[in-house]
Nucleic acid binder design. Sequence first.
RNA 1: GCGCCCGUAGCUCAGCGGAUCAGAGUAUUGGCCUCCGAAGCCAAGGGUCGUGGGUUCGAAUCCCGCCGGGCGCGCCA
Length: 580
Amino acid sequence: MPDPKDPKKTIEAILTNAVRQLAPGGAIEALLERPRNPEHGDYSSSVALQVAKSLGAKPRELAERIVAATAQEIRASGACESLGVEGPGFLNVRLTRAVKLEVIRRVLAEGSDYGRARAEKPESVQVEFVSANPTGPLHVGHGRGAAYGASLASLLEFAGDRVAREFYVNDAGRQVDILALSVWLRYLQARGMVVPFPEQAYRGDYVRDIAARLAEAHAVRFERDAIALPEAAAGDDPEAALDAQVAYARSFLGEDWRLLHRFALDQMLAEQREDLDAFRVSFDRWTSERSLHEQGLVERAARTLAERGHAYEKDGALWFRSTAFGDEKDRVLRRENGQYTYFASDVAYHLHKFERGFDRAIDVWGADHHGYVARVKGALAALGVDPGRLTVALVQFAVLYRGGQKVAMGKRSGEFVTLRELREEVGNDAARFFYVLRKSDQHLDFDLDLARSESHENPVYYVQYAHARLCSVFAQWGGDAARLAQAELSPLAGARELALALRLGEFPALVAEAARELAPHSIAFYLRALAAELHSYYNAERILVEDERLRAARLALCAAVRHTLANGLALLGVGAPEKM
RNA sequence: GCGCCCGUAGCUCAGCGGAUCAGAGUAUUGGCCUCCGAAGCCAAGGGUCGUGGGUUCGAAUCCCGCCGGGCGCGCCA
């Protein structure tokens, strides 16, 4: 059913209907698009050109027939001033002024809900994002996943879905052990003991910070005499040596190891959560990998795969036959030593997602994890869950530039730019906007100097400035904005005013499309276009004119623009300031 | 070597198989503040859409090859 409030959809429906009668069997839709050249109407459709071939008809003649077939219905809809055939067979639509302006009233009525879809049967969607290892501060790569995931979740919610935001905590593996070891060693060093610090351990300053807090909270509890940490000899595998050191610490500290481990993990998670809160990124749930093990979900998932005949034992390990589901090779679920792999808990986690009742799940992963998509989807299929219900959105890396130079990033070296540093350097608004200004599957060059600059070079200000400008006009006017909803709109006749109104009307459909495509970047592009038309209008015309009717009409238009800018910015987690 | 992503203006990037699809921002150049915010506006120059084929009436867009870049190919997480 076309939305009666949306003239574009109404006309699309009428045209589509006509095309289907003229060309039965074709599943073609008559879509309207905005021509760049305004002489070609408010909307244009190339449907006649697309369908002409299959009918063996000439595009122009077919277009004429479509116009003739729909003339009565189009007239009855009252939306069109004209519908004509131009060029090689384009259907060019010109809307009536009243229809274009009607959207202003709608925006004023709906306010902060303008653009929000009211789905009749909302889907429940889980969006899992960030899910960084709790072994270090969030860096700028996580920042992109955070900004993208948060905007995506907001967008889906706005588009009518029920959305659950989730962070998966990888707290079960070796990496957290290494963190705990690192913290302990720094703690001992801070207390004046001479202990070697392994090259492969976590070397960042944050480890010293956690060690200091450990000392504050537990004083000398973790001090020991006669520590004989096994040192790596030359030629040894450094990773194996690290494991030996973890094993030593674990047995040497006994019960205190668990306390230390817990402490380091909690500190790290708290820090990540603080960073995310400050970045206006929040989660409904933090799911612990460890808890999946403790609830027996990992063991159960592996067993279920085996029972369904999709897993087998080989070389003492349990393998998932993922090659039967399109993967390149089979994958180990349970190692020779009896430990489950990360992949096994991932299978359990994804199965659990759907058992919890979500219709769909969206995973936001770093692009370096693309190799995991096939095996996780394969496991879902093997477990009887339609893998189409899982969408993996891969987010490419962000590369930072400062002074035209690439900023080096290293993992355990501690040489990375943290999300916190980025926020402090460029601010939340610029960071959030920059991150979603690119398609997520596109590499992102993040120019720190540009994001930090408080000048016109910085794209975030362009949109915010439009909002602040309008706020300033309303402050000077000083009238009752609520009464603008009743304003007579007919004085609005300028080309820029009608273009703005048309642009406003696109917002709901844009939200729907951006949600369907998982593409918050198109919201950012829309906002830029809307802001551009507003700035152009503002420079060409005065809003607060003497003529009361004209002034009220222009203020109504401006109020509608302001609402739409604010709604779009909110989706991106960017502030809509009243002053700058 | 195999798999995935990418190659569009000097730079950063949008772009549904349609001619009305060669675009935006930025940078460069020239204009616009006795008037609601110049973080703004108006205008100009700037591209063989990596490359070679194919499909099509029509390709930046779809298919194949090649060149160039990124990422991944563990009983790590």
